[in-house]
C-alpha cells in the first residue's frame, strides 16, 4: 500500500452558475501535494488560483473531479464537517490580515481555538507560545491598530498555527507589506516548512513564489507548469536575502 498523499486532486473543475450563465473557473486540474512540501500556486489574477485555494481550504466546493485530503473524499463532507476540517486541518494567512481590531494580539491568536474543546488555559498558553515563536512576545496585549503590517501578519501566522494544522494556506501574505517585513514573513514561513509544516502559498509574483520549493503555475483555469524551484529565494532573519 502506498503512503497516502496529503492532498490529491484529480481532474478538478469548478464552475459558477448565475441566472443560467455558467462561468467556468477551473477546467480540470490534477496534482498531488505531499506532507512537508512548500508549494506556490502562482498565476495572474483571474487565473483561478484563489478559487483553487478556497476549494483546497474547505471554504468552497468543487463542481466535478476528486479532491481527497489525507485519503478522505472531501466532496462527501457536509457544512459542519467542512467547518471541522477548517478548524483542525488547516490554517489561513490572508493578504489583508483579517485580524479582529477590537481584540488583542493574544485574543486574535486564540480565536480558532474557541471552536475546539481547548480550555481557556490551554488556549492562552498555546497562543503565548506561538506569539513568542513569531517574535511578538512583547506585543501580546496590543491591539492590531498598534501593530505594524509585518507584526500583524506575524500575529496572523501564529493564529494559523494555533490548532496544529496539517497545511498552512498563505494567500498573498506579503501583498500588503513593505519588502523588508515581507521577507521576514517569508522567513517565518520557510522556517515553519523546515520544521516539517506543509505550506501552500498563493501569489501572482514570481519572486515571492520562488521562496517555495515547488511552483504550480495556473493560467485560465489550467495548470501550465508544475516544477521544482531551482533558484530558490531564501529570506534572512532580518529581511535580507541570503542565497
Amino acid at each position: 500500500m502506498s503512503i497516502t498523499k496529503l492532498i490529491q486532486v484529480e481532474n478538478l473543475t469548478k464552475q459558477y452558475e448565475n441566472e443560467e450563465v455558467v462561468t467556468k473557473i477551473l477546467h480540470g486540474l490534477t496534482f498531488d501535494i505531499e506532507k512537508g512540501e512548500f508549494v506556490s500556486i502562482m498565476g495572474p489574477s483571474g487565473s483561478g488560483k484563489s478559487t483553487l485555494m478556497h476549494i483546497l481550504g474547505f471554504l468552497d466546493k468543487l463542481s466535478t473531479g476528486v479532491f481527497s485530503f489525507e485519503g478522505r473524499d472531501v466532496s462527501q463532507l457536509n457544512d459542519d464537517e467542512l467547518a471541522d476540517m477548517r478548524s483542525k486541518k488547516i490554517g489561513f494567512v490572508f493578504q489583508a490580515f483579517n485580524l479582529l481590531n477590537r481584540a488583542s494580539a493574544l485574543e486574535n491568536v486564540m480565536l480558532p481555538m474557541l471552536y475546539t474543546d481547548a480550555t481557556k488555559k490551554e488556549r492562552t498558553n498555546r497562543a503565548k507560545e506561538l506569539l513568542t515563536q513569531v517574535g511578538l512576545e512583547h506585543r501580546m496585549e496590543h491591539s492590531p491598530s498598534q501593530l505594524s503590517g509585518g507584526e500583524k501578519q506575524r500575529v496572523a501566522i501564529a493564529r494559523a498555527l494555533v490548532n496544529n494544522p496539517q497545511v498552512i494556506f498563505a494567500d498573498e501574505p506579503t501583498g500588503n507589506l513593505d519588502s523588508k517585513s515581507g521577507l521576514q514573513v517569508m522567513k517565518i514561513l520557510q522556517d515553519l516548512n523546515e520544521e516539517g509544516n506543509t505550506i501552500i502559498l498563493v501569489t501572482h509574483e514570481k519572486y515571492t513564489a520562488e521562496h517555495a520549493k515547488r511552483i504550480l503555475k495556473i493560467r485560465d483555469g489550467l495548470i501550465v507548469d508544475d516544477s521544482l524551484v531551482t533558484q530558490r529565494q531564501l529570506a534572512g532573519l532580518n529581511g535580507e536575502l541570503t542565497k
Binding site: 471554504l59 457544512d79 459542519d80 489561513f92 483579517n98 480565536l111 471552536y115 493564529r159 490548532n163
Partner: peptide
C-alpha cells in the same frame, strides 16, 4: 468580515 473570518478558522453555522 468578522463572521467570514470566524467561519474560515473553523466556526460552524451553529457557533
Amino acid at each position: 468580515r468578522e463572521i467570514g473570518l470566524r467561519k474560515a478558522v473553523g466556526a460552524k453555522s451553529s457557533h
